[in-house]
Amino acid sequence: MRTKNKKTIALLTLTICVLLGYWLWLSLRPVDIVAVHEDGSNIDILVKDFPITNKGKINWWLENKDILKEKYNIPKPEQDGYFVIIFWLFGEGYKKTDGYDRLCFDDMKTEINCIDKNRVFSISNSKNRGTIFTVSDGEYHIKDGKIVKLKRE
């Protein structure tokens, strides 16, 4: 009986270590910006290997917003400060329109200018609400240097 328990514990420990290693690998992959599509103050950024957690997404933006400004000149706010940046997973790449649910980019002069909609993160800024980070489970903002989830009304 003891040998069986030791084998079970060893297998469980190995499984946990493999899962933690995989999670760590996923967390440390660099984000690959595939393309940036602009429509005035609205920006769509196509990415691969975006952070998985909400905190990881927000922290990635905070750490890389200056690089995005320097490399892509984004965001490009309107006079009142308004802008929206949406990050989409690039997935299987560009496709033809399905006439229904794909996101297509008019700045590409080809039939293959659409992606499957898989929004992973967005940042918006307005004078009324300030900077808001939107992820799958809600909206966040920075208050007193901390990332705080906004309560739904």
Rank of each mutant, 00 (worst) to 15 (best):
E92Y: 04
K76M: 10
N73E: 11
W60H: 09
S41A: 15
I86K: 12
N118E: 14
I132A: 09
W88K: 14
K96R: 11
Y22E: 03
I45Q: 04
F105P: 00
D98H: 03
Y100E: 10
I115R: 11
F83V: 06
G138W: 02
L62I: 05
I112R: 12
E78I: 09
P30H: 08
K95L: 09
N54E: 12
I86R: 13
T8W: 02
K143A: 08
F121E: 03
A35K: 14
F133P: 02
G91V: 07
V148W: 01
A10P: 05
F90T: 12
K143P: 01
V47Y: 04
W60N: 07
N113I: 02
L24R: 13
K69A: 12
L46W: 00
T134C: 08
D98Y: 00
N5L: 15
C17P: 04
T53V: 10
I43F: 03
E92I: 02
E63D: 15
I123F: 02
L89S: 10
G93S: 07
I132P: 10
E111F: 08
I142T: 03
K65E: 11
G91Q: 08
R119P: 11
S27E: 13
G130P: 03
I112T: 14
V34N: 08
K109A: 13
L62N: 15
L14I: 09
E153N: 11
W60D: 06
F90A: 08
S126D: 13
E63A: 15
K127W: 12
L89Y: 04
A10D: 09
K55C: 00
I85N: 09
G93N: 11
K69F: 06
I67M: 14
L19N: 14
L28R: 04
I45F: 13
V36Y: 13
I67R: 13
N113T: 05
P75E: 06
K96L: 08
G81S: 03
N64T: 00
H37D: 06
N118V: 11
L24W: 15
I16Q: 07
N5K: 14
E63T: 09
D49S: 06
K48A: 04
D98I: 10
